[in-house]
Write a protein that binds this DNA or RNA. Sequence first.
DNA 1: TAAAAACGCTTGCATTATGCAATTAATTGT
DNA 2: ACAATTAATTGCATAATGCAAGCGTTTTTA
Lengths: 152, 152
Amino acid sequence: MVKKIEHHNRSGCPVACALDIIGDHWTLLIIRDLMFLGRHEYKDMLNAEEGISSNILTDRLKKLECNELVCAIPHPQSGRRKLYYLTSTGKDLIHVMIHMARWSDKHLNDLVKIPPKKRDVLVKNPEKMIQSTLEQLAAWEKKFLTGTKTCV
Amino acid sequence: MVKKIEHHNRSGCPVACALDIIGDHWTLLIIRDLMFLGRHEYKDMLNAEEGISSNILTDRLKKLECNELVCAIPHPQSGRRKLYYLTSTGKDLIHVMIHMARWSDKHLNDLVKIPPKKRDVLVKNPEKMIQSTLEQLAAWEKKFLTGTKTCV
DNA sequence: TAAAAACGCTTGCATTATGCAATTAATTGT
DNA sequence: ACAATTAATTGCATAATGCAAGCGTTTTTA
């Protein structure tokens, strides 16, 4: 079902290669939902405040699966719902995400709204934020992925 | 000439805010040219191997100037050429760039081509790479921006 | 010094991506 | 049985991008 995809692959530059996969307006917001906001279902991401449209969401989830940043399993309590989650490749984007958030907080402070507590950790102790985020994800995985055949 | 721009500003999320400025296929490649590859002129960026088209390059440089990530001065040896360079806001994206490159190197290794020496520093001592990159930029600035009225 | 090349764009137009609303088929709850 | 939910899909309007050509000026070359 999930195949390798043909990226554009504009060059061998690592920045260009990354952008061929995550360099659009929506992909990293989906990663954010999965990484920080505990949104593991289609409808959760569809209802995110940025207002992604359903065709784009479907398309991006498909591409993320093709590129093996995201994986999905059927919801244990429901035959039609799915649970999406980050693979280790996807989770490894956490450093990019954290530094992007720090950059925004520093330079776009009139636009950015972060709860003060989170902001404090983000600014003063990003490593701690990375650790606790990864722990949360691990806890979710323990709850939902144990005993099933899963992608890593 | 350079005005504040209306971003979409889809939400107050720091990731979303960053993506409203740098979340497209080309902007970060321009940042890369300015940050790592010593390309400070329009034609240099136009000739980058990824093959940006001239109208897109013009548009993105304009937006980067509006958003104060990039600044330009007339070329000292030429009346029509310009020198583009990163402001401190632009340079602060270095952490995002470095981690993006590391991610690509780790997970897209069949696609990514980095000179072994650079790769070694990138993987084993990213902080050193950040420092040396910033030093290079500072050296360029010292050479071209001293004695002129400049944006920071 | 006249002609050619270089430079930083701009324009026009075809193609592709995105946004939006409505629809669908399957599943689940009442 | 009926209505609501869910994960999409479809059709269509609009916006973004790709591509080739052109433009006005400046610099280089003959």
